[in-house]
Design a protein around this nucleic acid. Structure first.
Lengths: 182, 182
DNA sequence: TCAGTTCCGAACAGGAGTGTTATCATTGCG
DNA sequence: CGCAATGATAACACTCCTGTTCGGAACTGA
């Protein structure tokens, strides 16, 4: 196995995030292997896409667990800060999922994403009950706002609009404190 | 002209936003016309995509002008509120551009988008100078954060996670005041 | 009724991508 | 050195989409 599975998935996520219609030949070229070799790893395009999605969700699950988002004893703002840090390197891995709609009707993937959503929303509800997050905002919305601000940071970093090391801080500070001058 | 150009673009943006790889046959079906008739309006797929993008940018330009974003005398927060309201209905029209990468190398479209970006960023810089927006956040980032919160609202509304009429308020309140409890 | 227009359906050629197969070169191991 | 495994290259069939063409249906206006 000259080229690791991870290297293939990494190349694939970069190519497919940049252009969801990219050819398997493009992916293979980016991974430094031939198209036929790529087919020996993933028999069909869909199989590759599925593996990519699973890998992205694995990493997200791991980040959520490591940050202790589901832990009621953990300070929710600290947990969110840790999670945001951990999410920043996942740009292309997860970003590709945003643009790839052919997996929308995959029940397993939807269920995995719903579970992540539930963990986040529960944590936000606890933070609201603890008086740390505004109770007048729907918890679902706060979670969505956080996620899309992370996407904003991914895009901003990729486009060179913000410094890579600033991403996490900007997301957290904007989400929690807002952009209006005090 | 039984089916208006606008109806075709509307159907096309909905179909292509849901799935950028959708076939022209899909688009024609959604628009209620035949595939051959669609070809009489737009000779190639690229021509249709270009028309869609131009239309979306036209609407964005109009919304920016109507909100007075570029007007230094206008209260910047009120202008942003008006703009956010005006952006809410543009979900699929602009959302499709987010996912469509085949137009990334189109110089005209890039220039149009850059001009919109410049108007927004200038307005944010003025708001920072006036003490209405935190000066410690990069103006580029504030603009991006606003835009992606708008996207979050589009997605949330489409998924039924937030009420359509709440979108604009949630975006503004989150961006300006933050989600942390005071 | 006739002419003109607009649209649809069917059919076709061409191109591009997927997935398969067979053959050859390379590397590593016994 | 010989064998096995791995991957590359090339070629192929197949499918799907694009873009074009043609004949006919429906509607309109004189």
């Amino acid at each position: 196995m000259a080229v690791s599975t991870d290297a293939i998935l990494d190349a694939a996520s970069r190519v497919l995030a940049a252009n969801p219609g990219a050819t398997l030949a493009d992916v293979a070229r980016a991974a430094g292997i031939s198209r036929t070799t790529l087919f020996t790893r993933y028999a069909t395009r869909e199989e590759l896409l599925r593996a990519l999605a699973d890998d992205a969700l694995d990493r997200t699950d791991a980040a959520i667990a490591a940050a202790g988002i589901g832990d009621p004893d953990r300070h929710p703002v600290e947990a969110l800060a840790d999670l945001t840090d951990a999410m920043m390197p996942l740009g292309s891995r997860l970003g590709y999922l945003l643009r790839e709609r052919s997996l929308d009707d995959d029940e397993d993937l939807r269920e995995r994403w719903a579970r992540i959503d539930r963990v986040m929303t529960d944590a936000i509800r606890r933070a609201q009950a603890d008086g740390r997050v505004r109770p007048d905002l729907p918890a679902l919305w706060v979670g969505d706002a956080w996620f899309w601000l992370v996407v904003a940071a991914w895009e901003g970093i990729e486009a060179g609009r913000i410094a890579p090391l600033d991403g996490s801080r900007l997301v957290l500070s904007t989400l929690l404190d807002g952009a209006a001058a005090p």
